[in-house]
Computed example of a mutant assay.
Amino acid sequence: MPGTFSQLYVQIVFAVKGRNSLIAEQWEQELYKYITGIITNKNQKLLAINGMPDHIHILIGMKPSCCLSDLVREIKKASNEFINQRNFLKSRFEWQEGYGAFSYSHSALDNVITYIKNQKEHHKRRSFKEEYKEFLNKYRIEHKDEYLFQWIE
């Protein structure tokens, strides 16, 4: 009997609203575990997750039946509620609108996983703005700067 076979790998990148550095080291692993649960419950496979106080990178193995925008919306909505219900911050937490999504071949996975795991070291040399624009240029994604994340200069 014929079946559907696929290997879809996508890195998702999104930022804290206003690009504020709000994700604290004390609770970031708890946040990552929670997001892992969301992805797993949506029957997708988490391959890597890490970030900085102002943004997050997630690498997933995606089934073709998954709608990426629905998955990202659910991750952002549920993790907003998770952070706010636990009172990790004195103010209300929100993710910024929008996200980046970049696909990879199976042969690139080890490099992408290493890249995501080393975010804190990587960002000692390159800002998130530089990193994000590099992704857009590398993938030849046409864009206007005014539609990118709000950048704190």
Rank of each mutant, 00 (worst) to 15 (best):
Ala24Gln: 14
Lys90Tyr: 09
Asn50Leu: 07
Glu25Gln: 10
Ser127Lys: 04
Asn137Cys: 09
Lys63Asn: 15
Phe102Trp: 03
Ser103Gly: 09
Met62Cys: 09
Gln29Pro: 01
Val13Tyr: 09
Ile39Asn: 04
Lys63Ala: 15
Ile35Asn: 07
Lys63His: 15
Gly100Tyr: 01
Met62Trp: 03
Gly98Leu: 02
Asn43Lys: 15
Pro64Val: 10
Tyr115Asp: 14
Ser6Arg: 03
Val13Asp: 08
Ile35Glu: 03
Gln96Glu: 15
Lys117Gln: 14
Trp95Asn: 06
Gln11Asp: 08
Ile58Ala: 07
Ser127Cys: 03
Phe14Glu: 00
Ile49Tyr: 03
Ile12Asp: 06
Gly61Tyr: 08
Ile39Asp: 05
Gly51His: 04
Ile141His: 14
Glu74Val: 02
Gly51Val: 06
Asp54Thr: 00
Gly100Lys: 03
Tyr104Thr: 05
Leu148Ser: 01
Ala48Val: 00
Leu8Phe: 04
Leu148Thr: 04
Lys33Pro: 00
Leu31Val: 09
Leu8Gly: 00
Asn80Thr: 15
Met1Arg: 11
Ile49Trp: 01
Phe149Ser: 06
Ile38Gly: 02
Lys129Gly: 05
Lys90Arg: 12
Phe149Ile: 00
Gly51Cys: 12
Met62Ser: 13
Glu81Val: 10
Ala48Gly: 11
Ile141Asn: 13
Phe5Gly: 01
Tyr139His: 14
Ile35Arg: 05
Lys120Ala: 02
Ser127Arg: 01
Tyr34Ser: 04
Gln26Tyr: 01
Tyr139Trp: 15
Gln44Phe: 09
Ile35Val: 14
Gln85Asn: 14
Asn20Val: 04
Val13Asn: 12
Glu134Asn: 08
Asp145Met: 04
Pro2Ile: 01
Thr114Glu: 15
Arg19Ile: 00
Glu74Leu: 09
Lys124Asp: 10
Gly51Thr: 09
Glu134Leu: 05
Glu28Asn: 12
Ile75Val: 10
Gln44Cys: 14
Ser91Ile: 13
Ala15Lys: 14
Gly100Ser: 08
Thr114Phe: 14
Ile49Val: 07
Leu46Gly: 03
Asn87Trp: 06
Glu81Thr: 11
Phe5Val: 07
Ala101Leu: 00
Lys124Ser: 11
Ile75His: 07
Lys33Phe: 00
Phe149Pro: 10
Asp110Met: 11
Pro64Ala: 14
Lys120Gly: 01
